[in-house]
């Protein structure tokens, strides 16, 4: 008897799988790549923020400029995000509940801000509402300056976050069709009642998802806001523009502490986003787009 009989069963590999060596190499490349590109900068933010200890970082947050910046950023988000949510719902309703010519073109126009550089977006608003422009000059004369003031920052923020809610809602509402709303209408419900009791419950998670992404971008927008705000300390300096000013004054701890605040916001956004994707995958566009 030969002792060459197989002592342990040969493990067969399915023909549709890569060899374990290939698989683990690819996983390693992905992990190392993301580690260098994404995790390292994230960790750096917190390491730099805590370079002089927790007390120093917390103290820098209580500084007047930092407090004012946080207040301004929260105000801007509180105004621009709901406005964009209203736009998103209205646009999605208009596009998915009615048939009209030029629909694809309208969707392209709504998506336009995503492909325009934030700096160009800011420039557009300066040219539209700046003191030298027709509209802006008149508004300044009436005592309502737009550029280098809060309204300009809100407009710039709305420009760059404009498509977020609409583009999340449109695919979801296309998929859901109009049958439920039509049923409610035949049963005698009014327009608003149909919206509140039929449509909104169907789209609430998608709406929340869109608002979440819109908010993260609104609070973190830098390029467009830097152009229109004039970065006046304590008046028109948002968190991102204050980070730039502090950084250029070599106030590293203060700059990175504010940056850490925004990084925490980004992390919370990602966690909530992941939770939404896990719990309500079938009601979101992002998780089953084609």
């Amino acid at each position: 008897m030969s002792d060459a009989t197989v002592s342990r069963p040969v493990r067969f590999r399915a023909a549709t799988e890569e060899s374990p060596a290939t698989r683990w190499t690819l996983i390693a490349v992905a992990v190392v790549g993301l580690g260098i590109l994404v995790f390292a900068p994230l960790v750096t933010v917190f390491v730099m923020a805590l370079a002089d200890g927790v007390v120093a970082s917390l103290e820098s947050l209580t500084h007047k400029d930092a407090r004012e910046a946080i207040r301004l950023t929260l105000t801007i988000a509180a105004i621009s995000v709901p406005l964009n949510a209203i736009f998103g719902v209205a646009a999605a309703w208009f596009i998915t509940k009615f048939d009209f010519r030029g629909k694809a073109f309208l969707i392209t126009l709504i998506d336009l801000p995503f492909s325009v550089s934030p700096v160009v977006a800011g420039l557009c608003i300066v040219l539209m509402f700046g003191t030298n422009s027709l509209v802006g000059g008149w508004l300044v004369a009436q005592g309502y300056p737009i550029v280098f003031a809060m309204p300009g920052i809100i407009l710039a923020t709305m420009f760059v976050t404009f498509p977020f809610v609409a583009r999340e809602l449109i695919p979801v509402m296309i998929e859901q069709g109009r049958a439920e709303e039509e049923a409610a209408l035949t049963l005698g419900a009014g327009g608003w009642r149909v919206f509140w009791t039929v449509t909104l419950p169907n789209i609430r998670w998608a709406l929340l998802y869109g608002v979440l992404l819109c908010n993260a971008r609104a609070m973190g927008e830098f390029g467009a806001v830097a152009v229109v705000s004039g970065k006046i300390r304590g008046q028109t300096a948002t968190i991102p523009t204050t980070i730039e000013m502090l950084y250029q004054e070599y106030l590293s701890v203060a700059a990175f502490t504010l940056a850490a605040v925004l990084a925490l916001l980004a992390l919370v956004t990602l966690v909530l986003k992941t939770l939404l994707e896990l719990r309500h995958a079938d009601e979101l566009a992002a998780t089953h787009r084609h």
């Binding site: 933010v45 993260a216 973190g220 991102p240 940056a259 925004l262 990602l270 966690v271 992941t274």
Partner: peptide, 18 residues
Amino acid sequence: DAAVDLPFALPTAVAGIA
């Protein structure tokens, strides 16, 4: 998987100084 989205979520100024 969640980390892939971080560049979308992290404000550009924060990414820049980091």
